[in-house]
Design a protein around this nucleic acid. Structure first.
Length: 142
DNA sequence: GTTGAGCGTT
């Protein structure tokens, strides 16, 4: 085996690997478009379903007020029977609190029923649905 | 005395 080839195998090869690693590390993300941020639109109002028949505005408020300032709580009742329709709305003073409460309370059982929470849609009077620009991180670990 | 996916009043 020729001497140059020997040297090449002993020293240059590892160097090449090192260089390749450095280059690939320094290389910009290869046209990596963020995979369609499925971050759902967020607004200060939550749609809360799966409510127990016995859940009222008071118990709802108590369950959500630890995540922020609850500005409005509404449970939909049947006009005739007066019984709860099993869902309602909880509005916070801002999107962050709403998202935090959603992440923390979605799926949790309340009064024996698992809550199904999502951001309210529809009757959004007072402006368009604002998509948050900054990542919102819930500080609660529930 | 029942039931169980869903998006609501002024």
């Amino acid at each position: 085996m020729a001497l140059p080839e020997l040297l090449s195998r002993l020293r240059l090869t590892p160097l090449r690997h090192h260089l390749r690693r450095s280059l690939s590390a320094a290389a910009p993300p290869p046209d990596e478009h963020p995979p369609a941020p499925p971050q759902p639109p967020s607004n200060p109002k939550l749609f809360v379903a799966g409510l127990s028949w016995s859940a009222d505005e008071r118990s709802l408020t108590d369950a959500f007020s630890s995540f922020g300032t609850v500005t409005e709580v509404r449970i939909m009742y049947d006009k005739n029977s007066g019984r709860s329709r099993g869902f309602g709305f909880v509005q916070f003073s801002n999107d962050y609190e709403a998202k935090c409460a959603k992440d923390a309370m979605d799926g949790k059982v309340m009064l024996g029923r698992p809550l199904r929470i999502s951001f309210a849609l529809g009757k959004v009077r007072g402006g368009p649905v604002i998509v948050p620009r900054l990542p919102m991180v819930c500080k609660f670990n529930i």
